[in-house]
Computed example of a mutant assay.
Amino acid sequence: MTGLAAHVTSLWGRWWIAPFLPALYVLALVPAGMVRPEHVVIAGAVMALGLWPQTKGLVAALYPGIFVAILTDAMRFVVPLFVTAGRVHGCDLRALDLALFAVATDTTPGDWLQRHISPFWDVVFAIPYAAFLYVVPLYALYLFFRDRERMSFYLWAFAVAHLIGYALWLIVPAAPPWYIRANGCLIDLAAAPSAAGLLRVDQLLGITYFHQFYGRAANVFGAMPSMHVVFPLIGLLTAWRSIGWRTRPVHILYASAMMVASVYLDHHWIVDGLAGVVVAVAAVAITARLLKRPWP
């Protein structure tokens, strides 16, 4: 056994491939010319930290999140194999929102909000949408030093929620509200992704952040369940037994703001958000059972 192989095996045992998996994924993208700078950065960081004894534990603890990052990126290859135009739900979801939550004749809450947009609320509701990508790793790192058992619970529930959510994206492909407003009920699989209401924030601030971020979305027709709603709920539910009412309102405010923002920014119908609530609860319950943690 070579020195490197012995070193890796001593650190990871039978999971020796773990520090190399993101790099192998990047190598698989090279022939198709689909490698982006963030792919290289993540792969390099995981390999470097995973091979250093002092930080191997951090990489191992964060691995459910690393798995989700790879899975999320790989969805662009999986979606075309399962999603066809005839299977995509569009105007029927608007009709369901209308039947359940109509605020006026032929007016869903999302319709009403689109008629009452303002720069102030655009910025307010852009905050949770801008923050979610950074909240997850930063919160996980905080828990790594503060409460590793809760970190494990949080990240594994996060991973389970993605497996459920992505499976539903393939089983029940759904068009977001902005697509219906722009294209009507006709489903075009070649439609480009959009940041929807967040484009107004780009224009207001003179930036292209949201346009570029959502322009790389792997799946236009993945509105149900809303994974944006899932993210803060996973944090709230996995922390519920461990925190008091000094910090619990922060979790509740974040989850509530994300739910409202998802509708205001025209990314989701209310039923998409409710589906996200069900996915979050199911993922936490499944993870609690797997990890033998008391919940709720």
Rank of each mutant, 00 (worst) to 15 (best):
P64T: 03
A223H: 08
L96C: 07
H7R: 13
A288E: 11
W169V: 05
T55I: 08
W16D: 00
A196Y: 06
V279C: 13
W240Y: 12
R289A: 14
L205F: 11
L186I: 11
P80V: 10
A275Q: 08
V279D: 13
Q114R: 13
A283T: 02
V250T: 12
L81S: 06
H268A: 03
G206W: 09
L100D: 11
D188S: 09
I70S: 01
A175K: 07
G110Q: 14
L133C: 09
R94G: 07
I127V: 15
K56W: 00
L237Y: 09
G244E: 01
I171C: 04
L253P: 02
P31M: 07
G235F: 08
I127Y: 03
S256C: 14
G13E: 12
A102F: 04
A140Y: 02
H89C: 09
Q212W: 08
F210L: 11
Y134H: 14
L100P: 12
A126L: 03
T208D: 15
D92R: 03
P193T: 07
M258I: 07
L49H: 06
A43I: 11
P119G: 11
G33V: 12
P225K: 07
L290E: 05
I270Q: 08
H251K: 00
G110P: 04
M224A: 07
G222Y: 06
G65T: 05
A45I: 15
L24P: 01
N183T: 01
A280F: 11
L58D: 10
G276K: 07
P53K: 15
V78Q: 08
H268Y: 10
A167W: 10
V278A: 15
W169D: 08
D202R: 02
P232M: 07
R181Q: 07
